[in-house]
Computed example of a mutant assay.
Amino acid sequence: MKKNYIFIALMVMALLPATAQTAINFDPTSTEGTGWIGFMNVFETPANGSGYVFGSGWGTVDLVVEDNMDGSVTLKPNRLNDTDGFWQTGNLTGNKIMDATYYLEDDSLAGTSITFNGQVVSNTLDDSTLDYPITYEAFIKVFAPDYSSFTSYTYDLSEGNFTITLAAAQSAVGDHIQYGFNMTGPNINIDMSFDAAYDALGGITIDENSTLSLESSELNEFTVYPNPTTSGWNINSTKQINSIQVYDVLGKQVVDLNPNSNEVTIDTSNLISGIYIAKINSESESKTMKLIKK
């Protein structure tokens, strides 16, 4: 009888469907989930203490995301159409740091295996004339059911095709799945006298992935949570992390660690609120990630 039970169990397992992988190729006209929407976290500049001001839904035109009407979009530095001194300084570099996210949320993907694919057609961003740098990335984010924390799987937006992979085990039903793009930097003065300087900052043009490679990039193997945080960042890697340097937005190093481990926690108790850049190094690769301290 025992052998029969085993045989029946094997038959049932054979009838179960294999876990399918959903390949999502970037399409700015997609209406899956929420469709493409915007969110902005606003911070004071480092000169004003770098504190968190507020976060809210945001129009994609004001992020700035330009729809090229050919299946591609261009991500550009934020340039809020508001002349109030809350946003502007009178100079090219404005009075706030804008953490702009252009994304789609589709909770039906929770607990499944997915890839987010796209192509960076061109990347001409040049922040050398600004007081503070611009950072950018493509991502898949897995938010907790109450949005209290998230894990981010990211890819630096150098030119060429990209693929970000999320395994089924890396999320669960009830989580919120977002994928898209992030650009963080200072608000640019809206005055017409700065139009030429704004155009010179360039942008990043994103289109569909022309090869749809399903190979996971080495750059996807680092994860960080919670982010934003109030106490500390946990960083995990499938490979040993040799060193981590964390810099504030002015380029000052505030953390220097040599964990030689796959897991490390960065204590933020001595850091002020704001945006930080972490450079994470293993034996075979280097990864830059944006970190937020509330």
Results as ranks from 00 to 15, higher is better:
residue 218 E to R: 04
residue 7 F to N: 11
residue 135 T to G: 04
residue 57 G to E: 11
residue 34 T to L: 08
residue 104 L to P: 01
residue 162 F to H: 01
residue 274 G to Y: 10
residue 189 N to D: 15
residue 245 Q to R: 09
residue 163 T to L: 06
residue 13 M to R: 01
residue 87 W to I: 03
residue 46 P to C: 08
residue 18 A to R: 14
residue 251 G to L: 13
residue 81 N to H: 10
residue 74 T to E: 11
residue 81 N to A: 15
residue 21 Q to L: 14
residue 178 Q to P: 01
residue 109 L to M: 15
residue 216 S to T: 15
residue 252 K to R: 15
residue 255 V to N: 01
residue 224 V to D: 00
residue 192 M to P: 12
residue 111 G to H: 06
residue 99 D to R: 06
residue 216 S to F: 02
residue 53 V to C: 03
residue 266 I to F: 10
residue 117 N to M: 07
residue 274 G to C: 14
residue 114 I to R: 04
residue 80 L to T: 08
residue 59 G to L: 10
residue 199 D to C: 00
residue 217 S to K: 06
residue 45 T to R: 06
residue 51 G to M: 12
residue 202 G to H: 02
residue 233 W to E: 03
residue 202 G to A: 09
residue 191 D to N: 15
residue 144 A to W: 03
residue 82 D to F: 09
residue 142 V to S: 02
residue 73 V to W: 04
residue 180 G to S: 09
residue 117 N to V: 03
residue 291 L to P: 00
residue 12 V to Y: 07
residue 120 V to L: 05
residue 256 D to C: 12
residue 11 M to F: 13
residue 26 F to T: 05
residue 213 S to C: 08
residue 63 L to S: 08
residue 114 I to P: 06
residue 96 K to S: 04
residue 263 E to I: 07
residue 148 S to G: 14
residue 8 I to W: 02
residue 199 D to P: 00
residue 189 N to C: 14
residue 42 V to M: 09
residue 161 N to K: 04
residue 268 T to V: 13
residue 62 D to G: 06
residue 277 I to V: 15
residue 102 Y to V: 07
residue 204 I to Y: 06
residue 111 G to Q: 07
residue 154 T to S: 14
residue 234 N to A: 10
residue 98 M to F: 07
residue 43 F to M: 01
residue 140 I to R: 01
residue 146 D to E: 12
residue 42 V to S: 03
residue 55 G to C: 08
residue 48 N to L: 13
residue 252 K to N: 15
residue 217 S to Y: 08
residue 34 T to A: 07
residue 5 Y to W: 10
residue 171 S to V: 06
residue 50 S to K: 02
residue 216 S to G: 14
residue 160 G to M: 03
residue 102 Y to P: 00
residue 144 A to T: 14
residue 38 G to F: 03
residue 279 K to L: 09
residue 184 T to D: 05
residue 192 M to R: 07
residue 79 R to I: 09
residue 62 D to M: 11
residue 86 F to S: 10
residue 177 I to C: 08
residue 162 F to I: 05
residue 168 A to W: 02
residue 9 A to K: 04
residue 22 T to M: 07
residue 140 I to N: 00
residue 199 D to H: 02
residue 121 V to C: 01
residue 204 I to G: 04
residue 262 N to R: 12
residue 135 T to C: 00
residue 168 A to F: 01
residue 270 N to T: 14
residue 237 S to M: 06
residue 108 S to C: 05
residue 13 M to S: 11
residue 212 L to F: 03
residue 191 D to C: 00
residue 31 T to A: 14
residue 86 F to A: 13
residue 173 V to I: 12
residue 52 Y to V: 02
residue 141 K to P: 00
residue 25 N to Y: 04
residue 50 S to W: 02
residue 39 F to W: 11
residue 174 G to S: 08
residue 81 N to T: 10
residue 50 S to F: 05
residue 294 K to H: 10
residue 20 A to T: 12
residue 126 D to E: 08
residue 141 K to S: 12
residue 226 P to R: 04
residue 42 V to T: 11
residue 62 D to I: 01
residue 21 Q to H: 09
residue 123 N to E: 10
residue 130 L to G: 06
residue 158 S to E: 13
residue 233 W to V: 01
residue 142 V to L: 09
residue 6 I to T: 11
residue 228 P to S: 07
residue 203 G to N: 11
residue 147 Y to A: 02
residue 45 T to C: 06
residue 239 K to T: 15
residue 243 S to A: 15
residue 156 D to L: 14
residue 98 M to W: 02
residue 129 T to I: 10
residue 93 T to V: 09
residue 97 I to L: 14
residue 32 E to T: 11
residue 17 P to L: 13
residue 173 V to R: 00
